[in-house]
Amino acid sequence: MKQIVVAITGLNAIDSPGPGVAVARAIREGFERPVRIIGLAYENLEPGIYMEGICDKTYQISYPAAGPEILFSHLKAIHEKEGLDLIIPNFDSEIPNFIALSDRLHSIGIRTFMPTAEMFAARDKQRLYAFGLEHGFKVPRDQLINHVGALESAGQTLGYPLVVKGKFYEAVVAHTLEQAQKAFFAISGKWGLPIIVQEFIPGTEINIAALGDGSGNTISAIPMKKLYITDKGKAWAGITIEDDVLIQLAQKFIKATQWRGGFELEVMRHSSGDSYIMEINPRFPAWIYLTAGAGQNQPASLVKMALGENVKAFTEYDAGKLFIRYAWDMIVDVSRFQHFTATGEL
């Protein structure tokens, strides 16, 4: 049986983890054929490089800011050695480069299973409110601001508390103008401008991991209620729940965008029962292994679809499956670290 070679990014299994380790674990568990997993790492301390049973080999690649040309030359060189069948990018910030390269990757025999540039742009944080209006989703009101002085009027319009969000990552709930200003400087210093100021919606945080086939069909959708949230707002523990309204929300999103690939809907369930879409992440979430645990292995299904197999939509999953993340200290000999640092391979 021919071995499939799958490359993945997002090996930073840290306190705000990338999804790569969970994606690799799910593929190994749910893909019925031999699979070789190639890690693509940005930094030499990403835990997934060194973890046993995750990547068969890892290569260092350029940061997204270097652009698609340098990325393509790295991927081509890796492909010549490894014979990649498929690449699954797992970071928001790198996906535009991979989308831009998808035809060229395909021409050298590397498949992807990602949204188009239009789908990717439609769910952008900076356009989310307009997206909600267009497709009939409840989305909190927001304003994009490029200077701190604009916070005052944003606060008057949206009221306090409000949420100050970076264009890629991070969000802070601010109860006063001063808190909002502090968050503005902290987040814009890290992720640049504009800053998104969003209406605060109180409620229960629920995330939905889902997989679309690119023709408007939902292959899988699993809602997860956050049970333990870190100071960075990440779920450290969560539980699958049974809720048709949430499944229908994911189905409606997939139908509206014809989404191709994995994604995550971040939802706030207001006490009125309304579900607000807070954010749409264009890739699998870090907790994606829970979908495998609940009976709908989304990463393995994505691999099958990318290889052209016909994957039927899942209809059932187990509600009441928890994931509980934990920290674990690996002991790694310095020689492995040095080898990766010096050669960009391990």
Partner: peptide
Amino acid sequence: KNIATNELGDVFNPSTG
């Protein structure tokens, strides 16, 4: 109907978690 219970007194609501 969908509420899970057992003889130990554990109750789980799958709709809300």
